[in-house]
């Protein structure tokens, strides 16, 4: 069993962190993982993305052409990566920032108003956690408990007070998923 993810969005939306949290959570659950970022000038203000592979066996290529799941946090990311989702895969889109319908009909599309939900929670920066809740719910790549445990481990000591907010964001994200893929 192997799942591949591309997380993409504006620099500052926390997409590299989304990938790292999935990678850590999967590592803690005994899986093989790899994480590669886009790097270079495009990190600054442009689009950022990372590729995560989670597998039960030794990972060959960490470079993925056809991921099983794409998470697009903004429109340019959807434009860039929509066509690359593996048929039968999952396309998670941040519907707060994306005002068009996906073209793909051979994948499961999950619309998550991540930015709006985070704003309602009082902190726009947890939009990535809302989306991540949806990703975990839809793909079961790691358990929800595993993801929350990882958050607990990775939040620095002086930010532990943000844990309930992040937990809430993850839970709300899960609620936007009506079916497990």
């Amino acid at each position: 069993m192997q799942q591949e993810f591309i997380f993409a969005g504006f620099g500052g939306q926390g997409v590299l962190l989304m990938g790292q949290l999935i990678a850590y959570a999967a590592l803690y659950e005994g899986k093989k993982v790899s994480w590669i970022p886009s790097y270079g000038p495009e990190m600054r203000g442009g689009t950022a993305n990372c590729t995560v592979v989670v597998s039960d066996h030794e990972i060959g290529s960490p470079v993925v052409t056809r991921p099983s799941c794409v998470v697009a946090m903004n429109l340019p990311s959807l434009d860039k990566f929509e066509d690359r989702v593996k048929p039968g895969g999952v396309l998670v889109i941040n519907s707060s920032m994306i005002n068009r319908e996906p073209r793909r009909t051979d994948v499961t599309v999950i619309k998550v108003p991540a930015t709006a939900t985070a704003t309602e929670l009082g902190n726009q920066r947890v939009a990535n956690m809302v989306a991540l809740g949806a990703v975990v719910e839809a793909t079961r790549v790691v358990s929800v408990e595993g993801l929350l445990d990882t958050l607990r481990k990775k939040l620095p000591a002086h930010h532990q007070d943000l844990l309930p907010l992040n937990q809430k964001a993850v839970e709300l994200g899960r609620s936007f998923v009506s079916q497990v893929v």
């Binding site: 990678a23 093989k32 993982v33 790899s34 994480w35 590669i36 790097y39 990972i59 960490p62 470079v63």
Partner: peptide, 10 residues
Amino acid sequence: DGLLGQMMEP
């Protein structure tokens, strides 16, 4: 190479 340097693995 740049990929290996940037890549995270356990």
